[in-house]
Design a protein around this nucleic acid. Sequence first.
DNA 1: GTCTATATTACGATAGAC
DNA 2: GTCTATCGTAATATAGAC
Lengths: 199, 199
Amino acid sequence: MTTPKRDTYTPETLLTVAVRIFNERGYDGTSMEHLSRAAGISKSSIYHHVAGKEELLRRAVSRALDALFAILDEDGAVGGRAVERVEYVTRRTVEVLMAELPYVTLLLRVRGNTKTERWAMERRREFDQRVADLLKAAAAEGDLRADMDTRLATRLLFGMVNSLVEWYRPHAGGGYDGEQVAEAVVRMAFDGLRTDVPA
Amino acid sequence: MTTPKRDTYTPETLLTVAVRIFNERGYDGTSMEHLSRAAGISKSSIYHHVAGKEELLRRAVSRALDALFAILDEDGAVGGRAVERVEYVTRRTVEVLMAELPYVTLLLRVRGNTKTERWAMERRREFDQRVADLLKAAAAEGDLRADMDTRLATRLLFGMVNSLVEWYRPHAGGGYDGEQVAEAVVRMAFDGLRTDVPA
DNA sequence: GTCTATATTACGATAGAC
DNA sequence: GTCTATCGTAATATAGAC
């Protein structure tokens, strides 16, 4: 079994450090020198574990993408009324985003300067398209307001969800509970901020 | 008067080119060589117009910040019921974001690696705080749902608004009308996506 | 105002010792 | 597995001609 012997790096433990620095400085703003100082080993030692900077990026965004796509295969995302599936995917995306925060953060900030970045952007677009199809189905079933374009609604909804990476921090002093955030996102998106008044 | 004589660059016209490339490749991912090729002049010619890369960034984020702060001084943001002021600021922020799209985009993506970036982030936090105070007042007046933390609501609301920079493009083929987008944001944020049902 | 040429530093990555 | 030393390239910025 994989006993955590400590001390020496593996590609996975090195990735944890690298992703943190990538998110602090941006991928392009992070040099191997920055990574080596944060990891406490020399630049050349990093190359013993991974092929280079771009492999670290590829491992990170893959992890984020795998976690996001897995949502779409869960029971709550494949059965029942479309509007229920949309709510389910929304809530689960918030949860995955918080559970895999640094990896998803990196994914959402990729600019497309390298082959790895362009591949990540393309897979992310696929995920967005799958979600957009869900909203379209919910609108067709009459459960979403008809006066709003579904593609636009998808973008706003997931713009709100994805914005979590800009401020959500686990365990922070004034931090929010994960469940509280997911609930707030769903409430605001589907029922709105305004005090309920009789229609 | 400032006749647009064409052809030769000014700091302002150069900024237009630079901001576009900054947004395509990211600020750190953009070299002076990239800028010189995009502008059609040599690297050294750029230094004739501006002190360097960071001055271009400073000019860009200043323009974005000035436009955003100006909203808070407009009539609709200072008078009347707080919830009306929140709606006004939300709508106007969407409009400013679309009108100054490349500049605001750059502002929202700075990471804090340089003094200019840290200054921009600090001013942006001030703006966010001013908006958060507005929502707090609206909640105190009973016009926003009481079961949601106002700081959290502010973050979600402006997360949604700011996400526009990730996809909104003016004049695009399948593009949205600016007014339509602003209306959709306000509708979704305050009334929710769901079909209205009697309370 | 724009250019070519270049100084200087930083970068990603490798070689080879221990 | 980690290190020091270094290679080759690309970065920001400047010098000086036109």
